[in-house]
């Protein structure tokens, strides 16, 4: 059992605003350290890997500090891990958005939405759950979450898909395996249902 106030390491790799993520975690009693330092992240009870922006620049920022290796190691060591938006996409092998290899802990590629759709996919859209996971508990099907992205994760192993969303076609909007949970939407921008996910994640971390 982890202590009542788990320490959550939020990975800072210059990919967007981390303030809302921090505040959402703190709201449910977590201690938060936002850092790009290996030791800080190694000391944490769990990792949140948020992100927005370009894939290549983000991978380069991770590699500069060898955070790519660290994240793979933490995932393999079963440290509870929540990826958000780009933090989901970077878990796959590569992305149509760039040429850099991504982390490759999930088989599959990141693809661009087809032309003809408005891009970015921006706004509130529904998630249909495919897996009962403790991090998604007490959230009914088809609740709206806030999305903003132009690319989506195309997984090889469909059994990892925890939730799907319709935009032109159905894509994976939530993924989970082992102690990894990742969402394409932003729970920290999705009102009360999004906050429920952070609350659930912290309970999940305490329970591990």
């Amino acid at each position: 059992m982890i202590k009542e106030k788990p320490l959550i390491g939020v990975v800072d790799y210059q990919a967007g605003n981390l303030r809302s993520v921090q505040k959402a975690l703190e709201k449910f009693g977590a201690q938060v350290v936002i850092s790009s330092e290996k030791q800080h992240l190694l000391n944490a009870d769990a990792i949140v890997f948020p992100g927005q922006g370009a894939c290549d620049a983000s991978m380069q920022n991770l590699k500069k500090k060898s955070l790519d290796e660290l994240l793979i190691r933490l995932i393999n060591d079963q440290v509870p891990f929540l990826g958000v938006c780009l933090g989901l996409q970077l878990l796959l092998e590569n992305s149509e958005e760039g040429i850099e290899d991504c982390l490759g802990v999930i088989q599959g590629n990141v693809k661009k939405f087809s032309p003809g759709l408005k891009i970015p996919h921006m706004g509130w859209n529904q998630v249909e759950w495919k897996i009962d996971h403790p991090v998604f508990k007490n959230i009914p099907n088809y609740q709206n979450f806030y999305f903003v992205h132009s690319y989506y994760a195309d997984l090889v192993d469909e059994s990892l898909i925890a939730g799907v969303t319709q935009y032109g076609h159905k894509f994976s909007s939530a993924v989970c395996f082992d102690n990894v949970i990742a969402t394409q939407f932003h729970p920290e921008k999705s009102g009360s249902w999004g906050l429920q996910i952070y609350n659930n994640f912290i309970e999940f971390v305490i329970g591990v």
Partner: peptide, 8 residues
Amino acid sequence: VSEEVFIP
């Protein structure tokens, strides 16, 4: 505002 309101 962003500390208390969790919408865009």
